[in-house]
């Protein structure tokens, strides 16, 4: 949209108001489109984003309905609506114990992810900076990280249960250990790829190590850190659902397992939709935070 104007500025170096006019002119050839055309453009853009997936969803639901039929096994969408209407329409009920609406299960899972992922972010960024900045730390730790990061989340669960002897800290540890690797590795890559230009700026200004860290290293590494955080939050959401199935109590993972044991497949489908939507929202939230923190310009 603003690309042609920017190109013009690089070529002509817009400085005086006189030379600015042609740039503005190319940007807006007409005095401005009428409100109706603009509203139409917005609606058109929204339609292009929403209509294709909505249509595809309808097609898939239709296929599912046809294939599932009335038999046993996987329920058809109409069946799910009949069986799990209460669960879909009221996510906020609370009948005590584990008989709660999906909102409460998801909130519990989210709070576990929040604590485990928060710890992983702090420790991961710190370790990543260390491994990225220090050659010996890199030589010593990087091979360990590369091996440990391939261990599947659930493989950590027995060890963590043996160590903590309680469900809650074990779940937190599994989240932590699952999401920390991409954070460490991406932060370290960002620190190692710190452009020599920025290092020279820092050196010619004689910035102290602390000033260098806060004013040069951290802002320059922010896009890498957020790439790691984004992968990490996705992985922690994968891990929490799986580990809650084994740990029990409240949480969306346990809910799915519990419904399976009571043969309420319809409820599981509803829970899966929640899990998917929440995971999507988490990913977008971290991406948005990254854009805000790096002010959208860290990679220029």
């Amino acid at each position: 949209m603003s690309l042609p104007a920017q190109k013009f500025e690089i070529a002509g170096e817009v400085e005086s108001p006189a030379s600015l006019t042609p740039a503005t002119a190319t940007r807006r050839p007409t005095p401005g489109p009428s409100r109706a055309t603009r509203v139409f453009a917005v609606v058109k853009a929204a339609a292009a984003g929403v209509l294709p997936p909505a249509a595809m969803l309808l097609v898939l639901l239709g296929l599912w309905q046809l294939l599932a039929g009335d038999g046993a096994g996987l329920p058809a969408p109409s069946m799910i609506w009949l069986e799990s209407k209460d669960l879909i329409l009221d996510p906020f009920f609370d009948n005590g114990g584990v008989d709660k609406g999906l909102f409460w299960h998801v909130t519990t899972s989210l709070s576990r992810v929040g604590v485990g992922f928060g710890l992983a972010a702090v420790v991961g960024i710190a370790l990543g900076v260390l491994v990225g900045a220090n050659l010996w730390a890199h030589r010593g730790l990087d091979p360990l990280f590369q091996v440990l990061r391939t261990v599947p989340p659930l493989a950590w669960l027995p060890i963590s249960l043996a160590a903590f002897r309680e469900a809650q800290p074990s779940a937190l540890f599994v989240i932590f250990i699952t999401s920390i690797w991409p954070i460490i590795i991406n932060t370290a890559v960002g620190v190692r790829n710190l452009p020599a230009d920025y290092v020279n700026v820092s050196r010619t200004l004689s910035l102290s190590p602390l000033e260098h860290f806060w004013k040069i290293l951290l802002p320059a590494t922010t896009p890498y850190i957020f790439t790691g955080l984004r992968i990490g939050i996705g992985m922690s959401w994968l891990a929490i659902v799986a580990s809650e199935m084994l740990l029990g109590g409240v949480g969306v993972g346990f809910f799915i397992w519990d419904q399976y044991n009571s043969s309420r497949i319809s409820d599981i489908v509803v829970a899966l939709i929640w899990v998917g939507l929440v995971g999507f929202a988490l990913d977008r939230a971290v991406a948005l935070l990254g854009r805000l923190v790096s002010r959208g310009s860290a990679l220029s």
């Binding site: 230009d197 920025y198 020279n200 700026v201 040069i216 802002p219 320059a220 922010t222 790096s294 002010r295 310009s297 860290a298 990679l299 220029s300």
Partner: peptide
């Protein structure tokens, strides 16, 4: 290459 810090 100017070496300005892009986040400032």
């Amino acid at each position: 290459n100017h070496s300005l810090l892009p986040w400032l």
